[in-house]
Design a protein around this nucleic acid. Structure first.
Lengths: 326, 326
DNA sequence: TTGTAGGCGTTATCAA
DNA sequence: TTGATAACGCCTACAA
């Protein structure tokens, strides 16, 4: 009973295998509790059946959904996922990419920090199967699964404009990524089309620790905003902390809306309007695109656009007497 | 310039290496973009610098914290983590353990389903470094990082008893794991010491989908509970769904408390009392124990107990007129 | 101080 | 139908 025979058996290549041998191998495997060593196999086959996933920050709820979705998809293909937190830190992103490549992962799904263009290009150059998720990086031949942020932001702002709001604020994290930029575009476009001037003092891209300070500043304007769009669950939490402390009423004093479906939003008093992005579907799509790339199937290098939907709840609904005291 | 010289360089064994050679190797590496192949190295060294983490369900918030904590710890040791969702499914747990072992991971951190005793024993038998987290499995020589669930549950129930509650409900998922069992013990103990009879109809271990139904049933008792302890964030959400739909007031009609710190709790109206478990610390501890095991350091096979703390908020505070209408 | 040889566990190829 | 051999890329001895 030679190693190669066992290998045949393990890989279910029974074509020419004698019933007798088959049985003997089966018994031996059972008796010795033999388990093939994936590492050796990977070395030989140059395939690890493992993909790397680099997400921005697992503390964002959407990251949880995304990683879960990708893992679910991979489970059916006997693929493993190694999930890494880049923390929106380009250096960590680089380090993780290196580690993952050293580990010979078969492909990568990345929520890019957008500050490693050279790295991204080298991935293309080295023919590493890569899919980007949630954020688009200009001018790279990498398939990217994203939400149409501009469009949905425009809708959101329009919803408020139609209700009579003109002093609308947008607060997001400071990252220079496509999601933020597109949301800015959508925000501006909506205001411009309604001929509402864009006020610098209503738009902020700040660290989480500064969100409350920014709220305080806006509250001291002669015309504080009457509506705030929070760009993520983490931003929303900070805003609510401020609002609660100040005893500000939603939506009577200020209307609220937030990107991402979070439990907090649904059960808040009043319930908070959320912009729901189909991250589970997007994770599945990214995984499926990556599998196609790995299996040398044709994959179009384009944006795979998903529509977000606005789940209107009480927090965003205008009251005639909205005071905009923030 | 032979492979072994390069290997020396890569592994920083400069002892006897000529300045000249060193430089030449460095240049060549730079030029070719050479990266050592971890797979080959792992095969040779029988070390993958990777650990497996099997958690119950990443949709629980505490799982997010735990996996983040473990990853943070490993990052500093150049270790990778492969995180797997067993979904509280023993078969998935088995499959993942097998996959991870085939991948030759150096160690395992598991939130055990508790339904794979043979599997756990075989891990010990095969000398795989393993640490359990969050749940204790009886009679296994595996270091386990857990919260003192019985103690904190007893405290929680006592808090209500002292405030005059006697009709106290406990709702948890149906898993047969130590956390649930210990909480039951704590619950019973507190009631017994106060000579309050234990009512079957107040205690439920059910799937998430049945939580609302259980609430409905309790509301039709002649004496509905005046207080409910939810055993997880997911249970709480279902209870709140029911409560909101019925227009029930918290804590006027029923008092609430929940295991796990969730944003939902802090910002709910009224804010919900949480039982905070130090999962970040526990994750770090589990990772550190595992590293010790991997490095053959002495590790005590015992329960590493952590104290949970109760963050009292309005939802659990008794009103004299608490009607217990549920 | 550097280079050569053997082997880690698997599989592809080819010989028996 | 099964077995021997080489090779995957790296590392450790040991030889040069």
């Amino acid at each position: 009973m030679s190693p190669s025979t066992v290998s045949q058996y393990v890989n279910k290549r029974f074509h020419y295998m004698g019933k007798e041998t088959k049985k003997k191998v089966a018994e031996a495997i059972e008796e010795l509790g033999f388990q093939p060593n994936t590492v050796a196999r990977s070395l030989k086959q140059k395939k690890t059946l493992t993909i790397g996933v680099i997400i921005s920050n697992i503390m964002h709820r959407y990251s949880t959904v995304v990683s879960r979705s990708i893992e679910d998809y991979c489970y059916n293909y006997e693929y493993h996922t190694i999930i890494c937190n880049a923390d929106d830190n380009p250096e960590k992103e680089r380090k993780y990419v290196d580690m993952l490549l050293a580990k010979q992962i078969d492909g990568l799904i990345i929520v890019p920090t957008n500050h490693n263009r050279e790295l991204y290009q080298s991935l293309i150059h080295r023919n590493i199967p890569v899919v980007f998720l949630d954020r688009y990086v200009n001018g790279l031949a990498i398939p990217t699964v994203v939400v149409d942020n501009q469009d949905v932001t425009e809708q959101a702002i329009n919803h408020w404009i139609e209700a009579g709001h003109t002093r609308i604020s947008l607060i997001s994290a400071p990252m220079n990524v496509s999601t933020r930029i597109e949301r800015m575009e959508g925000y501006k476009r909506a205001l411009q089309q309604a001929s509402i001037p864009i006020q610098e003092s209503y738009v902020h891209h700040v660290e989480m620790d500064d969100v409350q300070e920014v709220c305080r500043q806006m509250s001291q304007l002669t015309e504080p905003p009457t509506a705030i769009l929070a760009a993520s669950d983490l931003v929303l939490i900070e805003i609510i902390r401020y609002i609660n402390r100040q005893g500000i009423q939603v939506p009577d004093d200020v209307a609220l809306m937030v990107f991402d479906e979070v439990h907090l939003a649904e059960f808040h008093d009043p319930p908070i309007t959320t912009i729901n992005q189909p991250f589970y579907d997007m994770g599945q799509k990214a995984a499926s695109l990556l599998m196609d790339l790995i299996n040398k199937k044709e994959v179009e290098n384009k944006k795979y656009l998903y529509e977000a939907s606005i789940n209107i709840r009480e927090s965003s609904e205008a009251k005639l007497q909205n005071k905009g005291v923030l």
